[in-house]
Amino acid sequence: MKQPLVSIIIPTYNSKNYLEEAVSSALRQSYQPIEIIVIDDGSTDQTRDLFPEFESKGVKCFTIENGGASNARNYGLEKASGEYIQFLDADDIIEPTKIEKQLHLMQKHQAGICYSPWIDFKTHPNDGHQTEFRFLHINHSLIRTGKELMISYGMDNWFIPTVSWLVSKTVIEKAGYWNPAKCPNDDGEYFSRVLFWTKKVVCCNENLAHYRLVAGDSLSKLNSTVKIEASFKSHKQVEALLTTCDDKRLMCYPKRHHYMSYKLIKKGYPKLAKRAARHFDAIKSDSFLSKKKHYWRLINWFGLYNGTKIYKLLLPIWNLSKR
Rank of each mutant, 00 (worst) to 15 (best):
K98W: 01
W118I: 04
S218A: 15
L142V: 06
N179K: 04
P52S: 09
L142H: 09
K147L: 12
I85G: 02
Y311T: 07
D92L: 03
D246T: 15
K199Q: 14
D247C: 13
K255C: 05
P270L: 06
F54W: 01
I39F: 03
W178P: 06
T308H: 10
V163H: 03
E206G: 12
K266T: 07
S15H: 07
H124Y: 13
H257M: 15
W318G: 09
Q110R: 13
F280T: 05
D89P: 06
E148T: 01
N66G: 14
K147H: 04
N207L: 12
V38N: 00
E206R: 15
K98G: 01
Y75K: 12
D246N: 15
L136V: 11
N300F: 06
G154M: 08
H294C: 08
L103G: 01
S192Y: 00
H124I: 11
A90M: 00
K98I: 00
S192G: 14
A230T: 09
P4F: 05
W165V: 00
L272K: 13
K312S: 04
N126T: 11
I172K: 03
L250R: 03
S7P: 02
K169H: 11
L166V: 08
P161I: 10
T44F: 00
E95M: 09
G76P: 07
D127E: 14
Y305K: 08
Y177L: 14
C204Q: 10
Y31M: 04
T198I: 08
S152I: 02
K284M: 09
I85A: 05
L5D: 01
L142I: 09
L289M: 11
G307E: 02
I64T: 11
D187N: 14
P117E: 05
T225F: 11
F302G: 02
E239R: 00
S285V: 08
S168L: 06
T63G: 10
I94D: 00
